[in-house]
Computed example of a mutant assay.
Amino acid sequence: MLVGYMRVSKADGSQTTDLQRDALLAAGVEPDALYEDKASGKKDDRPQLAACLKAIRAGDTLLVWKLDRLGRDLRHLVNIVHDLTERGIGLKVLTGQGAAIDTTTASGKLVFGIFAALAEYERELISERTTAGLAAARARGRKGGRPFKMTPAKVRLAAASMGQPGTNVSDLCKELGITRQTLYRHVSPTGELRDDGHKILDRR
Rank of each mutant, 00 (worst) to 15 (best):
Leu2Tyr: 15
Met6Ile: 07
Asp12Trp: 04
Gly13Leu: 01
Thr16Gly: 10
Asp18Pro: 15
Leu24Asn: 02
Leu24Pro: 01
Gly28His: 11
Gly28Val: 13
Asp32Cys: 12
Tyr35Arg: 09
Lys38Glu: 12
Gly41Trp: 01
Lys43Asn: 06
Asp44Ile: 10
Asp44Pro: 07
Asp45Tyr: 07
Pro47Phe: 03
Leu53Val: 10
Leu53His: 05
Ala55Lys: 12
Ile56Ala: 10
Ala58Cys: 10
Ala58Asn: 11
Gly59Glu: 02
Thr61Gly: 04
Val64Arg: 03
Trp65Pro: 10
Leu67Glu: 03
Leu67Gln: 05
Arg69Pro: 08
Leu70Gly: 04
Gly71Leu: 03
Ile80Phe: 03
Ile80Cys: 02
Val81Trp: 00
His82Ser: 12
Asp83Cys: 13
Leu84Phe: 05
Glu86Met: 11
Ile89Trp: 07
Leu91Glu: 02
Lys92Thr: 13
Gly96Glu: 07
Ala100Thr: 05
Ala100Ile: 05
Ile101Ser: 02
Asp102Asn: 15
Thr105Lys: 02
Ala106Cys: 05
Ser107Gln: 12
Ile114Val: 11
Ala117Ile: 10
Ala117Asp: 10
Tyr121Ile: 12
Tyr121Lys: 12
Tyr121Pro: 08
Glu122Tyr: 00
Leu125Asn: 06
Ser127Val: 08
Ser127Thr: 11
Glu128Leu: 02
Thr130Ile: 11
Leu134Asp: 04
Ala135Cys: 03
Ala136Met: 00
Ala137Glu: 11
Ala137Ile: 14
Arg138Tyr: 01
Arg140Cys: 04
Arg142Gln: 01
Arg142Ile: 00
Phe148Cys: 06
Phe148Thr: 11
Leu157Cys: 09
Gly166Lys: 14
Asp171Ser: 14
Asp171Leu: 13
Leu176Asn: 07
Leu176Tyr: 04
Thr182Arg: 05
Tyr184Phe: 15
His186Asp: 00
His186Ile: 00
His186Trp: 02
Ser188His: 14
Pro189Ser: 14
Gly191Gln: 03
Glu192Ala: 15
Leu193His: 10
Arg194Glu: 03
Asp196Gln: 13
Asp196Thr: 10
His198Lys: 11
His198Gly: 08
Ile200Ala: 13
Arg204Met: 14
